[in-house]
Design a binder for these strands. Structure first.
Lengths: 130, 130
DNA sequence: TTAGGGGTTCCAGTCAGGGGAAGGTCAAGA
DNA sequence: TCTTGACCTTCCCCTGACTGGAACCCCTAA
């Protein structure tokens, strides 16, 4: 199977698939003409990778997760550990963004937004009151 | 004023300040020995930049915001527009992260996390059910 | 004079790919 | 047989917003 079909089936850009090969996440075979020759197992793995990335796992997380996925003697605790660490990261990012949102939405709603220059948003950015 | 003092006063790494000069956000003078010579107005601007960056504005947003900040004839609508666009970006990111969080927290809580290999997290990543 | 703690530039790396050039390969139609 | 166009290949540079490090210069105090 050529990269185009894999790209469609795994719903990943060809560029991304080539990149994943470059960093050793997938190892497709090669045809005599130099084209990558993907097996079903490669497609399966790429789908796995796509889903993990969509959940925000880093590439290194993905590397660890696929290793566990392929290890029939894995302990589910190892998988859960990676996932719950990632959950903590997500929670931290959400909290960060919510703090930004709170500050900024107050500022936006207090700004007249007309053609006059007075602007509480700029005033607040100017203040050293961190 | 040398970069070290500015770094302390604006609470920004010296590297960051040099970078901001490189991309034209600040334009400190130079001493005869080649050292950057910052004025009070430069420090003031760097504090402004630091606060805007802390609220998640991009560098290009910051460039626009400082231009407005220094334009005494600005319309507050222009500032508000940048800020509310940014709010929308923040809201989108929060929504994304919350969706990830929801999916992943269900998975984590359904995984035994012991030494057995059965793992709903891996099973779910494997499925093509996008 | 020397040691240290400033400062300077420049280069490379981060993360996860994206854009695009230059060129090879394949299948279908004239 | 030739050509067209879709597909594939590698290669290199670009992104954002810095960060780390090397190699070197400058200033002050002991």
């Amino acid at each position: 199977m050529n990269i185009g079909e894999v790209s469609t089936r795994a719903d990943l850009p060809a560029k991304t698939i080539r990149y994943y090969e470059e960093i050793g996440l997938v190892k497709p075979l090669r045809d005599t003409n130099g084209y990558r020759a993907f097996r079903e197992s490669d497609v399966h793995k790429l789908v796995f990778l796509g889903r993990a990335r969509a959940l925000g796992f880093t590439i290194e997380d993905c590397r660890a997760l696929t290793a566990l996925w392929e290890d029939k003697a894995r302990a589910s605790a190892d998988v859960r550990s990676i996932a719950s660490d990632h959950l903590i990261q997500i929670e931290a990012k959400i909290a960060d963004l919510q703090a930004m949102h709170e500050t900024l939405s107050h500022l936006v709603s207090s700004c007249a937004g007309d053609d006059r220059p007075d602007c509480p948003i700029l005033q607040s950015l100017e203040k050293v009151t961190r």
